[in-house]
Write a protein that binds this DNA or RNA. Structure first.
Lengths: 196, 196
DNA sequence: TGTACATCAGTGAACGCGCGTTCACTGATGTAC
DNA sequence: TGTACATCAGTGAACGCGCGTTCACTGATGTAC
């Protein structure tokens, strides 16, 4: 039952990290405060030393979840050579990503829930989407040597983003594994093959 | 408090219709049995004369919701001349559809929820998606006079479907109206303009 | 450097509300005679 | 055709469980002297 300032910060982050995974897996209404604290090795009561309410945690955890995937991509890009669109699309539309929503992109895991959420969450979400689309548009720069770069890249980036979100969402909801894989493979082919 | 066999069937359909709208609007966890019955002009207790449990209702209502949008499209096609891809995409990506999820396509309204649902619901969903993709592929027949019709149409239909779902989902979750409209307009342009 | 004391992260029981479900009851339907 | 009776859709109060939140308490941290 010891506690220092540093420990509190660690605990806080631990709760957020667990919550951000469980939220992506089970949805906003699928995670309970008691279960979350138990998984963090704590008891319920302590929760309110970290968050004003369950809603506050959800807002913070979704923000964290939205950022974490982008951070993963950024790390991958920073690690070695620069990231290509093909790599991004390939990993996004992989069965590994489909099967691990908790560690994956929060946009495709939570779009529906966020559409029903409050202004704060939706506003954080909006900036994330804006950022993601810009990131894709940037990657298109390398591939498209066409005319009207800025505008056409932006449009192509929006289409690409929508297709990615739609494909992963559908591949998770569909119960037929063959169809699920077909959706992922087809969209990957369309976005990285002779498209754009 | 009167009741005949015909009245019971009507009541059952009324509950399902209301539930299918509210589910699309508020998600699976967002609708309560008591509220639903109240909106249908009834009291809670009677619910179990129609459904074994809340889960049973949800399964049936989602099935109904998934079918209803397709039925709407079918009617539109049957009414006058035959439906074109441009018309389908245009109405799907309209702000009217975005702003009325309760009366719109259940796929984009509930993908995330369905991914977390039981086998029965996901299986019904799967067949609906299969059907929708076939419908789009059929519409592409009219427009694409290219080679390898069957295969390329199927692939293009999958991409189109994913983009539609993604675009509407995102347009609803984003809080910036300008960005929301941009997503819809950009994807419509990409799918009906010089794409494919 | 040691000692007394305030702070506060974490505990775990208890509270209270919402909601799905149950149940005894009502009265119109519709069948049996 | 009329009458007695069984059925069952719908009522509304009550139950019980889950879950978010509160609260009195504990004991290590870290500051004041």
């Amino acid at each position: 039952m010891g506690h220092s300032q540093a420990e509190k910060a660690q605990t806080h982050e631990r709760i957020i990290r667990i919550a951000s995974e469980r939220l992506r897996e089970k949805g906003i209404d699928g995670v309970g405060v008691a279960d979350l604290m138990k998984e963090a090795g704590l008891t319920v009561g302590g929760f309110y030393k970290h968050f004003g309410s369950r809603d506050d945690l959800v807002t913070e955890a979704i923000g964290s979840a939205l950022g974490s995937w982008q951070a993963k991509i950024a790390n991958k890009a920073a690690d070695g050579e620069k990231l290509t669109l093909g790599q991004l699309v390939g990993s996004y539309l992989s069965t590994a990503h489909r099967d691990a929503p908790g560690k994956g992109c929060a946009v495709s895991a939570l779009v529906c829930d966020i559409a029903r959420s409050g202004d704060e969450t939706r506003s954080i979400f909006t900036e994330q989407v804006r950022h993601d689309i810009a990131l894709i548009a940037g990657l298109l720069d390398g591939e498209n040597a066409g005319l009207n770069k800025a505008d056409s890249n932006k449009a192509q980036a929006v289409l690409t983003f929508c297709a990615l979100i739609g494909a992963v969402s559908l591949s998770r909801a569909v119960s037929d594994d063959e169809m699920s894989r077909e959706i992922l493979a087809t969209v990957e082919q369309a976005l990285t093959g002779t498209s754009g």
